[in-house]
Design a protein around this nucleic acid. Structure first.
Lengths: 244, 244
DNA sequence: AAGTGGTCTAGACCACAGC
DNA sequence: CTGTGGTCTAGACCACTTC
């Protein structure tokens, strides 16, 4: 029993995208089981009334996502999966919300300051140039989870403290039309200083997770430099890496 | 002065790949500066004696890598970069070697054991089924850096302790014809227990970086489950995330 | 209006896997 | 040998951006 597939030529959605979505949905709901063959491209194209390149484009996007494998002389198979969908650029706010933790934010600072050497290097602005600095305490269930310090180029977007208490920074950036593309991160650990310990309600010397992140938009501009500190007892990062 | 580009039709290397490599090299050596336009696809195709789809395929691969941006009605531009090449699936051995640290490995255990529930779930084998467990201490300059515990399906590859002392696990897997595709990681921190402290030459309670990783090959099979512990005073992770 | 990338077609030949 | 995906061509029309 072949899979039920069809495309709508009157839709503004590209045909290859319609097809790849249907295939992805079929894989996700188990209609296409791991290891099963997809049927050859030419036959599939004929069945759908599409050209082979269009079908290939649909399949290729799923290969890139890691859902399908192609083998010359064999065919296209559903991956022997366990691999779930890649995680998005981790956003603490979204993570907490998804976990049903009802995140809250306390804005500790939201000012324009001169860039330090480190910030200037990360954001690609001149040292001493103006940048916006936002310091926030992120809480879940009233308990502090992390101390977040973000530095952004001025003029990139309006950041009102009120908005920052309502939602996450990445959502505000996306809403401002910024297309996030990638982020370079460094994750480490260290013992809490006295000030950090107090802020995060941990004993002095408690292990903290640290993260430095520079985020880039789709034009390669650095749009944010973050130095965050998380309570290791309450939070860990999860993410998926792709091998190139 | 247009860029010097050419393709060799007698080469077994695909034409689109030849082109994308030349463009990438030109970007990397600065012959194509950030923000500069690439020239439209049809003209480029004509100049190289290629068809437009072939040129598009070359350009698309660089767009996927984040080196180029396309804008309808505008053209294809070199990204306003700072974004360096994405990091490979981080391998401690390679990281250390690249940093000139001359890594060494001490194999503490290399045995076949029954899978715990956690391992069984990660590797997709039956609970209690046989798996290979490798415990290693990784050193740099004679100092311990990390304690690595890897569990693999039996029969995936031969793992001799001698080889494990010579090189990294991922290199051995690649050499055995396994194509690594992606990894799901969780990174956290905690205070060192007494046993860990002793093994890593840290004081008890010192902050440690922890990582759990399940690695998948290109067919989606889980090929490794790792639980590693790093001295936070000596090591931090760097990696690049792509936003989807 | 002109120029760009985005999508799509209907073919073609080749390289590799499996029988 | 047969069937599969991998590569490539020479067009076409559309949507969007800029002037």
């Amino acid at each position: 029993m072949p899979l039920q597939l069809s495309v709508d030529r009157n839709s503004p959605v590209p045909l290859y995208f319609q097809l790849s979505q249907q295939l992805e949905a079929a894989i996700e709901r188990g209609a296409l089981t791991p290891g099963s063959l997809l049927g050859n491209e030419i036959e599939l194209a004929g069945r759908l009334g599409l050209s082979r390149p269009t079908v290939r484009q649909a399949i290729q996007s799923l290969v890139d996502k890691g859902l399908l494998v192609r083998r010359r002389g064999v065919g296209t198979q559903v991956v022997h999966s366990q691999v779930k969908r890649p995680l998005e650029l981790s956003s603490l706010y979204d993570d907490l919300e998804a976990a049903g933790q009802r995140p809250a934010t306390r804005v500790l600072a939201n000012t324009v300051v001169p860039a330090t050497a480190e910030v200037a290097a990360a954001l690609g602005v001149g040292e001493g140039g103006e940048v916006r600095r936002v310091e926030r305490l992120r809480l879940a269930h009233g308990e502090p989870m992390a101390y977040l310090c973000n530095v952004l180029p001025v003029g990139l977007l309006d950041l009102e403290s009120g908005q920052l208490e309502e939602t996450g920074l990445y959502r505000l950036m996306r809403a401002a039309g910024i297309t996030l593309h990638s982020a370079r991160q460094a994750v480490g650990a260290r013992a809490a200083t006295r000030a950090e310990a107090e802020r995060l309600d941990e004993p002095e010397g408690a292990p903290l997770l640290t993260m430095e992140r520079t985020t880039f938009d789709d034009t390669g501009r650095a749009v944010e430099f973050a130095t965050n500190v998380y309570r290791a007892s309450r939070y860990s990062f999860e993410f998926q890496l792709l091998v190139r």
